[in-house]
């Protein structure tokens, strides 16, 4: 298996590439390229997501962004954002592979505009086609276990279930489902993608045992994106450390933390 999580060194390995950071940072909606660069640098994110769009300025806009990516020196994960059909996604993936010189593709096939939820049927079909063509696919999916199984059967080594709809910042809409998914696929790298609005959401996902967090809007639209990116990096580290440390089980009834034995005055009212 090419993709594993090395718990000894705590290196995250995705399709054979090791990473020390577990934050995957989107590059859209920042106030400026400079602030985007600052966010990447301060968070120490090693993977950034990118896209491709129609070029209207004789290649200059794309070239400027390409230069910025190269200056950052990070791993690039292109997406198929906005695609609604298998054909659109496959064509976009091929264009992205040529543009960014990488077999990695964050596969998004969107079902509708209101929720931007994954079209799981087309997602699985597109994943199968792309894997057979040599792509290393990061599918943006739901927390549905049967879909996850189909994606793994198609050859995906990583799954990226949503926390909540893209751009909502609502956090983990269904922690129970995400916990179940983690338990059901203990050896598959799972990255929560979308819906994470604040660092505590990221910590919660990492405490569930998730391997990483993919986010964009929560950082890009913060008053201080660079500082927020750092906050997310710290929250992800905290959640990861807690997961590795072993979190206590919840109880319904109180249990004194201070030892009861030896409590002074314990028997005054006993007569």
């Amino acid at each position: 298996m090419l993709t594993t999580t090395d718990t000894n060194s705590d290196t995250l390995t995705l399709y054979g590439k090791p990473f020390s950071s577990r934050l995957l940072l989107g590059t859209a909606r920042y106030p400026s390229p400079k602030i985007l660069s600052q966010a990447v640098t301060t968070s120490e994110a090693e993977i950034i997501t990118v896209s491709l769009r129609r070029e209207s300025a004789r290649g200059q806009d794309g070239q400027r962004f390409w230069d910025l990516i190269n200056e950052l020196g990070v791993t690039v994960l292109p997406n198929t954002a906005g695609c609604r059909t298998v054909r659109e996604a496959v064509t976009t993936a091929n264009m992205a592979r040529e543009l960014f010189s990488t077999p990695w593709i964050k596969l998004e096939v969107i079902a509708n505009d209101d929720t931007l939820q994954p079209d799981i049927f087309h997602l699985v079909e597109a994943a199968r086609i792309l894997v057979e063509d040599g792509f290393q696919v990061f599918p943006y999916t739901t927390d549905d276990l049967s879909v996850a199984e189909r994606l793994l059967e198609a050859g995906c080594d990583v799954l990226m279930p949503w926390g909540a709809p893209i751009g909502t910042g609502r956090g983990l809409a269904n922690p129970y489902a995400l916990r179940t998914m983690r338990n059901y696929f203990p050896d598959t790298p799972l990255i929560v993608d979308a819906g994470v609005g604040k660092p505590s959401h990221a910590t919660q996902a990492m405490e569930l045992g998730y391997d990483g967090i993919m986010l964009n809007t929560a950082v890009a639209l913060a008053e201080d994106p660079a500082r927020m990116a750092k906050a997310f990096a710290m929250s992800i580290d905290a959640g990861r450390l807690a997961w590795k440390a072993g979190i206590m089980e919840e109880r319904d009834m109180a249990v004194p933390s201070t030892p009861v034995a030896g409590t002074p005055f314990f028997d005054l009212d006993a007569g």
Binding site: G26, T27, A28, R29, Y30, L36, T49, V50, S51, L52, R53, R54, E55, G59, D61, G62, Q63, F65, W66, I69, P78, N79, A81, V90, T91, N94, M95, E98, L99, F100, I166, N216, T217
Partner: peptide, 27 residues
Amino acid sequence: FVAVPARAARKLCADDKIEIVAPRQGG
């Protein structure tokens, strides 16, 4: 998709729909 090496051989016809895209920010 038409890869760079295939552009010279890809003949155009009336009403063809061409997409030309470049790297861009994405989430």
